[in-house]
Design a protein around this nucleic acid. Structure first.
Lengths: 187, 187
DNA sequence: TTTATTTATGTATTTTTTTACATATAGAAT
DNA sequence: ATTCTATATGTAAAAAAATACATAAATAAA
């Protein structure tokens, strides 16, 4: 039972999902490819954590829908009592930023302009998603889901993503403001 | 040449460092253990990217100090022209947050209280570091390093870390404010 | 004087993650 | 008709990362 396994159980604790859906939904929090998800789901099924049901579809290929079992819920509850390990962030841009002074400012500006664009797109997607969650949970203006609501966790995470995204945009804009536009003159 | 290899070159582009120092310094941007660093440095040396010199020390064990070569600098300059890949963030707390509603609010509060403490400690370390960088680069109030300064990159990264850390603290405090203190009453 | 910690470097093994290989259905576009 | 994309599931192989195994010098603490 590694972190990804618990992550899958966590997603399944609110609704039954296919491996493909799990793969798409876990991306923002714990990036993983389908080649990691499918074998892990099979293992979780062997361990009795989840159950699987084949669902026929007419408009799309058939799928296997996984549901969490009591054993899976118990594993989650146990897992929630142990402190979360420190977050791990790996950002190539940070490594590039460190040696930026070795290239023309224009090259550096390009890197940060691309990243700014990336965060602006992300912000737009997040705003739409937060709106849809508010709609699904039938929330009024400035109201948030109750602790018991399955949307409580999703809501606080979306809020974090939103806050982080805005901070990152602010930072990129600041960086673009402090990198000289013209090639710096040599005295 | 993977990202970690470029990361090591990036750090070496401003000053010669031992494998041990590189391991400590790359942590905030690209976590890596010494078992990854040492063999990679040997490979970079074989490829002519870096050179190595044995330095005797009297107060501590001897060390191998690595310096970047022209070939290493050229590799960095080339690398800086290709867009940075998307940042990867893996946070177990996010996965736990999603299934929080399955346990008592007190259990959830504990998770976020611990994380808040983590970020507060980080903020303190960052403030000290930013102060020391300002001192080393002999900066006056509200002045920042020039683009050519080797501290420019370090400065903008420290600023990002600072901004992110504050946002995370704000978020943790908000989460602790919205998680009910008492066990929620059942109607 | 023994023990613990920090600094310092390395290898071996295991786990995790990514990339590539492989197949297949359904709809949309060309 | 063919191609492309999204959906859907799987395995094989390679790369990256973490853990464990190993050693050692120097200092500080018990």
């Amino acid at each position: 039972m590694n972190t990804l396994a618990y992550g899958l159980l966590s997603l399944l604790s609110h609704s039954s999902l296919s491996g493909y859906d799990l793969m798409l939904r876990i991306q923002p929090f714990w990036p993983a490819k389908h080649s990691q998800i499918y074998p892990l789901l099979a293992r979780l099924e062997r361990n009795g954590m989840v159950s699987c049901e084949l669902v026929q579809q007419s408009d799309k290929p058939d799928k296997k829908v996984y549901s969490i079992n009591d054993k899976g819920i118990a594993a989650l509850q146990e897992w929630l009592t142990v402190p979360a390990s420190d977050p791990v962030m790996r950002d190539e841009l940070m490594l590039k930023a460190f040696c930026m002074s070795h290239v023309d400012p224009a090259v550096s500006r390009e890197l940060f302009a691309a990243r700014l664009e990336h965060y602006r797109n992300k912000l737009e997607r997040l705003c739409q998603k937060i709106k849809s969650v508010r709609q699904v949970d039938e929330l009024e203006e400035d109201q948030m889901p109750s602790y018991q609501s399955p949307y409580f966790g999703a809501y606080i995470m979306l809020n974090k993503a939103l806050m982080s995204c805005r901070t990152n945009i602010e930072w990129c804009e600041w960086v673009l403001a402090v990198i000289p536009v013209e090639e710096a003159s040599v005295e």
